[in-house]
Simulated assay, not measured.
Amino acid sequence: MIDPFGRAITYLRLSVTDRCDLRCTYCMPQRMTFLPKKELLTLEELDRLSAAFIRRGIRKLRLTGGEPLVRRDIMWLVERLSRFLGTGELDELTLTTNGTRLAHHAADLARLGVRRINVSLDSLEPETYARITRGGTLAETVRGIDAALDAGIEVKINTVALREDNLEQAVGLAEWAHSRGAGITFIEVMPMGSVEADRLDQFVPLTEVRRRLEERWTLTDTTLRTGGPARYARTDQGGTIGFITPLSHNFCGSCNRIRVTCTGQLFMCLGQTADADLRTPLRAWADDAPLEAAIAAAIERKPKGHDFAIRRSAPPAVERHMSVTGG
């Protein structure tokens, strides 16, 4: 799949649910309204949809949410999708998780061919973690991370930089991740969906985070790429630190990604509203030709990039929450 700007689309982020067992302050309001379960694609439909994308050239597939591991029988889908690793049609099957249920699933994920996962972790202070997540238990997520590492899964910590909540912890978070043999990526807060906080108060440009890290280490930029928007540096002690900068440094020029929601909406760009309905052709025809035609037509409409910006008291750049689109 080649978009109008000559970019090969090889990476699908597939949401399996909009639900999450946490309520992170930068992600969603405390009283979040989730979709009726009847609107979600079934696991069988998600499998069929994934197969269609893989036939079209997707080589990396990331399961997202919400929190993907809260979806009932999610391991059935992981097992089904793992067949594409065995045939060589898929290079990587992975997921992004908050880690709360990872301890229970880590061994099975490793057995089914998941070699690398991203785990969201924004603080190592139990009280701060509970405040950011609105009730999460830090020890539970740490247990999940350790279980994944023990199962032989490579872990990358994802940390959203928040000025009042964890900016002072950036070095400590990186040291903690590296001490466990994990990498870490810092992410600028994204203006998606309304939350109680003003995101301008939360926002930290990652140039500021990097300055703090460089007080601890010498950082050398690398050519490492893992299929997503992160740009990586290596410390003089061998640890890897990534930076995702949707606001301070647009990364759209090399975009190879698309996102599908748990209801079958294909979003060609995280920061735009244009979408394509895949649920209708998925359900209306047993033949996949109409579905693949809808995918092809959508790729022809993929925009050049997003228009993210944060302004004081302004509405979010995109009204849908990240948990709806898929993280």
Rank of each mutant, 00 (worst) to 15 (best):
L63W: 06
E188W: 01
T245K: 00
K304D: 15
G86K: 13
Y11F: 07
V209C: 07
A174R: 04
E92M: 12
L112V: 07
G86I: 04
R13E: 11
R216N: 10
L270R: 01
L270E: 03
A107L: 09
M75W: 05
D277Y: 02
E214Q: 12
G57F: 05
L35F: 11
I132Q: 03
I184G: 04
R301K: 15
L69S: 08
T64K: 03
L219P: 03
L81A: 05
M1K: 01
R163P: 09
D3Q: 07
T245M: 05
I9M: 06
A294N: 03
S254P: 00
G6Q: 13
L35T: 12
R301T: 14
A293W: 00
D198G: 12
G271R: 02
L291A: 01
V324R: 11
M322L: 13
T128P: 03
T207Q: 09
T223W: 00
F84E: 08
L41V: 05
P4L: 04
A177W: 07
G183M: 06
G326D: 08
E79R: 09
G193H: 02
G57K: 02
A170W: 03
S194C: 06
E127A: 15
V160W: 02
E67Y: 00
T245D: 01
T235K: 04
R199Q: 10
F251D: 05
G152W: 05
L12M: 07
L266C: 08
V324L: 06
A276D: 04
G326A: 08
A309T: 13
A110R: 06
R210D: 12
L12D: 04
